[in-house]
Computed example of a mutant assay.
Amino acid sequence: MKFTNYCLSSEGAEVILATSSDEKYPPENIVDGRSETFWTTTGMFPQEFIISFHKCVTISKLTVQCYLVQVLRIEKSVSQDPVDFEQCIERELQFKEGELQTEEFSFPEIQATYLRFIILSAFDAFVSVHKMIAEGIVKDI
Rank of each mutant, 00 (worst) to 15 (best):
Q87P: 01
Q94L: 03
P27N: 10
F53Y: 14
P27C: 04
C66Y: 12
V57S: 03
T37G: 02
A18M: 07
F85G: 03
P26F: 11
Q70P: 00
I74A: 01
R73H: 00
Y67L: 13
I74M: 06
I110S: 06
E48S: 14
V78K: 15
T113C: 08
S60C: 12
S79I: 05
A112W: 12
D32Y: 06
E97N: 12
L100F: 11
G98R: 12
W39M: 01
F38Y: 15
F95R: 07
L72I: 01
E23S: 09
V69C: 12
P108D: 11
D22W: 02
T41C: 05
S106F: 03
K76H: 14
D81K: 14
I50P: 10
T58Q: 15
I50Y: 13
I74Y: 11
L100P: 03
Q70S: 04
F45D: 07
G33E: 11
E48W: 09
Q94T: 11
V57L: 07
I110Y: 11
E28V: 06
T102K: 10
Q80E: 15
D84Y: 10
R73G: 02
K76Q: 15
K76N: 14
V69Q: 09
E92I: 00
V71K: 15
E86L: 06
V71M: 07
V64I: 13
G98A: 04
L93Y: 10
A18E: 12
D22C: 00
T19V: 02
S106A: 04
V64A: 06
E90D: 01
F107T: 07
T42P: 00
Y25W: 13
R73M: 11
K24Y: 15
Q94F: 06
F49C: 09
Q111W: 15
T41N: 03
I51M: 14
F105T: 04
R34N: 09
I51Y: 08
T113Y: 06
V78W: 11
E75F: 07
T42A: 05
D32M: 06
P27F: 11
W39I: 04
P108S: 03
D22N: 09
I89T: 13
D22A: 00
A112P: 04
R73Y: 01
D32P: 06
H54S: 14
P82I: 04
E23L: 01
P108H: 08
